[in-house]
Every structure is written in C-alpha cells, then in structure tokens.
Design a protein around this nucleic acid. Structure first.
Lengths: 128, 128
DNA sequence: CAGGATCCTTTACGATACTG
DNA sequence: CAGTATCGTAAAGGATCCTG
C-alpha cells in the first residue's frame, strides 16, 4: 500500500528571510574557527613570508603543536601557502595566498574594532 | 670605568611595527571566541528582540546549554541585553546593545566574504 | 517558556619530549 | 629549523531530567 505523504515544505517564516547571510557567516567561521586563526592571519597579513619559528614568536602564546595544526588547516583551505626551501636545515616559509588576502577586510575590521572599542568598557555609562 | 653601552634599542624589526594591531585582534577575538558567537550575533543583528527559543531555532545546530552559556558570556561583555518580561510563564528577550551593534561592520564583512568567496573554491585555478 | 543540574563523549588545547 | 608523538587537562557538545 502506498501512503501518499503530503510533501511538507519547510516552514518559511521570518526566520528564513535572511538565511543566506547566516549561512555565509557559518561558512566563513568554519574556515576561521579556533582560537588562533585570526591571530595568525593578522600576523601574516601585515608582512610577507614568515617562517615557522617567526610565527611561533609573533603569535603570542601559541605552542608548536597548535601552530602546526592551524597552519595545515589553513593551507588545506588555500588561505596560506607553505614553501619549503632547499637549505640545510630546511627553511619553510608561510605566506598568504591571493585568496587568503581577500580576508583582509575582515581582519581589518576586527583590528579596527579592537582599537576603537576595547577601552570603551572603562567609561561605562548606562549603556545597558 | 664607564663603558659606554650603545643604547641598544629593542630590536624593532618588522615584527614589532604593527604590534598594536595584533593586540587589538587578540582583544577582539577574546570577546568573540567560541564556535557560536558570530552566528548568534549575526542572527541578533538582523532583526530585533529574540527569545531564547527563537535563538535555539535560528542558530542552527546549537543546543540549549551552549546557547545559554554564550548568551551569558556576551551579556557579561555588554554586547547583548537580556530582558525578562512579566508574563506567565516568563518571556525573555535578547537583543543587541548599542555597544554590541558596533560589531556590525565585522559581522557584515564576514557575511560578505562568505557570500562572495565560499564558491570560489570550486573553480580553483592555479591560485596556489 | 527559559533555563539549570547532571552525566557522558568528543574535541580543543597545552607542555614536554623527540626526530629528520 | 620545522615539525611529530605522546600525554594530560579543559572545554565543547549532546541527552535527559528537573524547576520556577
């Protein structure tokens, strides 16, 4: 016996109106999740090639394991590139890809916000 | 004997030039860390007040526990406000504070990037 | 409805060693 | 130098039940 099921469309209430935007945010943050991605990207975006040890020093507080993992992660997503040089011992350079550089506006906004508003907490008025 | 020491300035190589910027990024991300903050903020920024259950539905995938925790966290940082209404049973509304709304440019950039570039991965040229 | 309490599983993260 | 391996802690995340 074939029971015909009403093809129940997903309810499109107000919630769904700007769903694309929310999906876009989710998508982006999937690439940038984790405690260190923005920090690393901010560092790589301000100059050029950096070696592993450079990053270990510049990204304050990160350990080798996390740095390694985050770099691999972002390399897989084509945000940064990894170049091994024929020196001895080997030198490895990391830098932003062109694709990764398109993240600059995001990082810039974050840096700008941090500069402008972090101190705003001090003179808290009745800002609720 | 006074040995005149060259007043060795702390080495200001490229690393230190934009240190403030990096600190600003770290600061900002401290407020926005976690898997769900951007998602929740993006949702709250696109409309007005939302109740707990609304957010539970809109923020796709989050559970009650995490939502509760993230909301408390952001309320503590004055990014959002929580209002309890005298209904029965109680209604609780969340919305962005004026301070929280200053995050809009960041969220916008993230949403914009997600919309523009998430599909870029499909037609990968030799972008390396 | 808006959550908190409890329990349990899975990642995330960190410190310390060790290798090519 | 540029990592990996190993181990241990902390936080994320889910399920279920409970309360005002």
């Amino acid at each position: 016996m074939n029971i015909i099921r009403m093809k129940k469309e997903p309810i499109l209430n107000n919630s769904a109106i700007c769903k694309g935007r929310i999906l876009a945010i989710k998508d982006t943050m999937e690439l940038l999740s984790g405690k260190w991605k923005f920090h690393i990207l901010g560092t790589l975006l301000q100059g050029d090639k950096l070696r592993f040890m450079d990053l270990l020093r510049e990204v304050d507080g990160i350990g080798a394991k996390m740095l390694s993992k985050e770099l691999q992660d972002m390399e897989m997503n084509h945000l940064i590139s990894r170049t091994v040089l024929n020196t001895k011992p080997v030198t490895v350079e990391y830098e932003m890809t062109d694709y990764g550089k398109t993240l600059a506006p995001i990082i810039d906004e974050i840096a700008k916000w941090g500069t402008a508003y972090r101190n705003a907490l001090h003179n808290e008025s009745g800002n609720q």
